[in-house]
Design a protein around this nucleic acid. Structure first.
Lengths: 123, 123, 123, 123
DNA sequence: GTGGTCTAGACCACA
DNA sequence: GTGGTCTAGACCACG
C-alpha cells in the first residue's frame, strides 16, 4: 500500500501527519500500539530509518511513548486526542488568519472567503 | 536593515511574498521599477543570488518583467493587482479548508473556529 | 502492581537499584530470600526474563547468591549492607564532582550549589 | 583528532555535551559559527549524519540556529551561556541530591560526602 | 559549500 | 522481535 509523497514536506513528517489524523478521527486510540518500525516501513513503502524519525518526532511531542523491546504506543491519557485536535485546529486557523490579514482582509472578509469557497463547489 | 527570516520557508520565497503584499496593498504599482538585484540584496541583507532567484520566480509567475539594461518592472497591466490578490486569497482559503476538512471539520465549524480566534484576541 | 519505569535506564537495572535501596535501608537483610523470578516478575509487572537479568547482575556483583532448587538469597555477610552503601555513595559523589568540575565549578561552589538546592525547596 | 567515545551514551549526545562545555567555558561564544557538519564529522572522527543529529538536538534545545547554505551558529542572545550553565548545574545537583536522598542521606551528610571526596584526593 | 533528507544495511541493548 | 544508533553514500534545496 505504498503511497505517493509530496516533495514539499519531508516524508517523515507527512507520515506523522497521517498518524495525527488517525488519532483525531479516533481510528487510533490512547494506549494503542503502533506498527513496529519495520512493519510501518513496509506499509508506507519507505526506509525504516524514516519511520524511526517519525516516531522520534511523535515522542518528542509527547504523543507517543516507546517501550524498548515492546513497541511504540499512543500515550495513554484519554485527553490526548482532544489536545491534539485543539492544537492542530489552532495552528491551522492562526496561520489562515495571519496570512489573510497580511493581504489586508478583515475578519468578515475572511469568513466570506470561506463561504464563497464552498459556494463555488456547489455550482 | 537585515531582517529576520523564518527557517521554514526559503528566504527567496519570503522576499517574493513581501513583494506580493506590497503590490496588493498598493505600495508598489504596475509599471513601477523594483530595486536592482544588488540594491535589493543590500536592503534585504541577503546574498544577491537569493534576490536573483526571487526575481526569476516573479518573472516566471508573470508578475514582473525585466528590461535589459533598465531593470526589473512590475508588469504594466492594471489588473495584475487584483489577479494577484485573488490568486493568493484562493490559495490560502483552499489550503485552510482542506486542512480543516481532513480533521473532520464541517463548513460551519470552520467559520466558528475563525470567529473564535478573533474572540480570544478580544479578551 | 505494575510501576512506571523511566525510559532512560534499562528496566532490569532500575529493579536492581530498588533492591539496593531496600538492602541499604534495612528492609531486606543479609540471608533473606528474594522472591522467585516468576513472583518478582508479577510483582514488578515485567517480563520474567527481565528479572532473570536483574538477578544475574546482582549475582555478578556478589550481592546475591542463588541456591539451586531453593531460590535467590542476599549474601550472608553482615558487612554487605555497609559495603553497598559506601559503594553507591562513592559512585554518586564522584559522578557529581566530576560533572561539576567539567563545568568549571570549584569545591566550595559545588557545596554552595547543594545548599542552594535545599534553600529553594524551603521557600 | 578522533577521540574515544563511551559506549554508555550515544555519540551524538557526547558531542553535544562537549559543545555545551565549550559554551559554558566561553571557548565558543554567542553568534559564533560551528564547524560545518562535514568538517565537524572529520574533526570528531564520526559520520556526518551523527553530527547532523547532534546539531538538530542543539537546535531543538534552542542553543543553536541553522541558516541554510550558511552554517550553524550559536544563538546570539548573550544570556545563552548563563542559561545553559544554570540548566546543567541544576540538572546535576538535583540528580545528586535525589540519588543521595534515596539512600537515606540528609543534607548535611551529602555535603560531608562531597568534602570527604576532596579530602581523600589530598592524601 | 551548507544543511536536510533519504536509503541501505549493519550492530546493539532490551524484553 | 523491538526500538536505538551508527555508517556509507546519495541527492536536493539553498546561498
Amino acid at each position: 500500500m505504498s503511497k505517493e509523497y509530496e516533495a514539499s514536506k519531508p516524508i517523515y513528517w507527512q507520515i506523522a501527519e497521517q498518524i495525527f489524523k488517525q488519532i483525531i478521527r479516533g481510528e487510533i486510540r490512547p494506549g494503542d500500539k503502533l506498527p513496529s518500525v519495520r512493519e510501518m516501513a513496509v506499509l508506507s513503502g519507505v526506509n525504516p530509518n524514516t519511520i524511526q524519525r517519525t516516531y522520534s518526532e511523535l515522542e518528542r511531542m509527547g504523543i507517543v511513548e516507546t517501550r524498548r523491546g515492546q513497541g511504540t504506543f499512543i500515550v495513554s491519557r484519554d485527553e490526548i486526542r482532544g489536545e491534539l485536535c485543539k492544537k492542530m485546529e489552532k495552528d491551522i486557523v492562526s496561520h489562515f488568519v495571519q496570512s489573510m490579514a497580511e493581504l489586508g482582509f478583515t475578519k468578515d472578509e475572511m469568513i466570506k472567503s470561506v463561504q464563497d469557497y464552498f459556494r463555488e463547489g456547489e455550482i
